[in-house]
Simulated scan of single mutants.
Amino acid sequence: MNIETTSHPKKEDLQIISDGIKSYNQQYLSDDVVFEEDTRFAVFAKDENGKVLGGIRACGYWNYCVLELLWLSEETRRSGVGSQLVEAFEEFAALKGFNYIRTETVSFQARPFYEKLGYTVYGELPDFPKGHTTYCLFKELK
């Protein structure tokens, strides 16, 4: 057996890993859950000229939606745009049938913002990135 590390994996090799875990999961989950397609979407805040001033990148699978990235331009911060983006994101996630949201934020980013919106810290990664803490948060959708 050879152990190989690569930063350029072949698409077909990655598919074998995906298919393998799906096969394993079938022992514990129904086929409609095992073979459910990931949902990828974004929410944008744009000015009247179509310039992106902020947004959210997200994906979801099973019953969780993952808020991967949230960014706001300097001129939109502390103006309510972030809350509007998260509200639109949560509404879309709920319409798609997701029950929970999870996300991460770093100590110099937006923990108080998320907590104000009802998110709860469920874990911490100290010194990630070095000198800071990453907080893992979740929220149940109603």
Rank of each mutant, 00 (worst) to 15 (best):
W62D: 11
I17M: 15
I21E: 06
T39N: 08
F113P: 03
E140G: 10
K142A: 14
S83M: 03
I56N: 02
K10E: 15
D32R: 03
N49W: 01
G20K: 07
Q15C: 02
G55M: 09
C59T: 12
I101W: 05
F92M: 05
G131K: 08
T120C: 05
V86R: 01
K142M: 07
G55V: 09
E74M: 00
D38Q: 10
R40H: 15
R57K: 12
L141Q: 09
Q26H: 15
N49C: 01
Y28C: 11
Q27D: 14
C65R: 00
L137R: 00
T5G: 05
L53Q: 12
E74A: 06
C136N: 14
D13E: 15
R111T: 00
K116G: 03
E140F: 04
H132I: 00
G80P: 03
K116N: 13
R78E: 07
V34T: 06
A58R: 02
D47T: 05
L69S: 04
F138T: 11
G20N: 15
Y114E: 08
Q84H: 02
S107G: 07
F113R: 03
G60Y: 00
E115F: 01
S79F: 01
N49S: 12
R57S: 13
K51E: 11
E75K: 04
S83F: 02
A58G: 10
A42D: 13
G97H: 08
